[in-house]
Write a protein that binds this DNA or RNA. Structure first.
Lengths: 248, 248
DNA sequence: GCAAAAGTGTTGTCCTTACACCCATGC
DNA sequence: GCATGGGTGTAAGGACAACACTTTTGC
């Protein structure tokens, strides 16, 4: 057999193999997939989450996290990024996958599988450029019922956040660029639902060396103003590998 | 308006609302979804994973984790349980979701989204009742190339395992019912890829109080036999909440 | 001057780490 | 008796938890 014939035979065989694979995939049931984005922020000493009014009449009045269907030619994380951009105008947000939700009856319109994503951001920094469907920030603590299984998804996001914030100093994403230690501590206390000793808290963060003293102070507070700090992102990135837990 | 008419109107409105929801879902692109199960075991001081020979000719010779498509009427975790049962005959295995994989070209037969699940089990206890497609245990350390993106999925499973085993004493699932402290330590060392101080390791586990002395000893070892222990599952379940990290 | 929060150090306890020798068994 | 791994204790250092008083500002 000539080399040419060999090559041809191999190519034909590859084609055939591909066809087999394609035929197999065509036998798979197909399902609608959506992604849902749980976006946390922090404002007025309260943990908040970004919700829209569900556009489905069956959920009259109920709120929903930001979600939409996944297109056939996009990855799930790309879909999540796109949806966030479409719904809020924000496009520089890091999203983390937190899990899938696939109960058969979770969507009243039929079977829909969803994958939930989560993010933290600074409310002041990320202005909402689009506010259709009454998009706005809700206090997490006052949310009761939600559309779909979104309360479950929100709860999963909250558990993820509580865990994550103890493994990485992510809380900074939720704060303004310059913040006082009191604000930082309020944030941790709000998310973890505990109170923390002020001196030990300050010592811990001081010893991590991730705070940069801006030499500025709080203004317009009816008490002694606190120092304002910035987060040292470079140092954090460098040492990322070493972070396992913050341990409160 | 009579009460009856009201009720009727409401029912009609509900029907209409449902129809709207159904129509909406019908506009969503549909995709094939699969689940893939990364099943870890431990034998001969080696971390192992359960693989089958890919039945796709395009992956001639390459290995694959256990996966299959999700049916339209089953939840993802149910699919994972079913697949494990179908492929191995095992039906008492706890599976944890580790994430989705949705690259457009990850399957040669066309776009397929997969969600990966992970489990740990005791090789001796969970005999494979089915071994089609050359199903068997492979040393994790010697796996190079795999079918699909399964090497990535395996790596994600491994990272998940390394993290999990430091948060919960899950390692016991990988060991026989009765095991020596040396076996337990070998397991941790194999998974974490480190060496640990023997005395400190024993102290740590002794202080956790999760080990029950069986008063039995290893047999047929060419050296002083070690004590055999059992894992105290009840105590672990009771204190589950408190576990955050084991800290090596 | 008073209310309100900022800022700061020390001590005891516990946990972690590092480290070396004798013991029981099979061959 | 020798090779192999089993079994054990201690001391030093570091991290964490608990705790109270003085300082600065606005009113």
């Amino acid at each position: 057999m000539s080399k040419k014939t060999n090559t041809l035979a191999a190519a034909t065989s590859n084609q055939a193999d591909l066809l087999v694979a394609q035929t197999l995939v065509q036998t798979y049931p197909q399902l609608p997939i959506t992604v849902d984005c749980v976006i946390f922020g922090f404002e007025d000493n309260e943990l908040k989450v970004l919700l829209i009014r569900s556009d489905l009449a069956v959920f009259k009045g109920l709120w929903s996290v930001l979600g939409d269907n996944v297109q056939s030619d996009e990855k799930l994380d790309e879909a999540a990024t796109r949806i966030l951009k479409e719904r809020t105008g924000m496009d520089d947000v890091y999203l983390d996958e937190i899990g899938s939700f696939s109960e058969l009856n979770r969507h009243p319109g039929g079977r829909v599988v969803t994958v939930a994503y989560c993010s933290l951001l600074n409310i002041k920094h990320h202005q909402l450029k689009i506010t259709a469907n009454e998009l706005h920030w809700h206090k997490v603590s006052s949310i009761q019922e939600m559309a779909f299984d979104h309360k479950q998804i929100l709860d999963a996001g909250l558990r993820w956040l509580q865990k994550r914030i103890q493994e990485h100093p992510l809380g900074f994403n939720l704060l303004p660029e310059k913040f006082s230690l009191r604000e930082l501590q309020n944030l941790y206390e709000a998310i973890l639902g505990t109170t923390l000793d002020r001196r030990n808290f300050r010592k811990k963060f001081a010893s991590m060396g991730l705070l940069v003293d801006t030499k500025e102070y709080e203004q317009d507070v009816p008490h002694r103003p606190g120092k304002l700090y910035k987060f040292n992102y470079e140092k954090y990135e460098k040492n990322k590998r070493k972070w396992i837990a913050i341990d409160f």
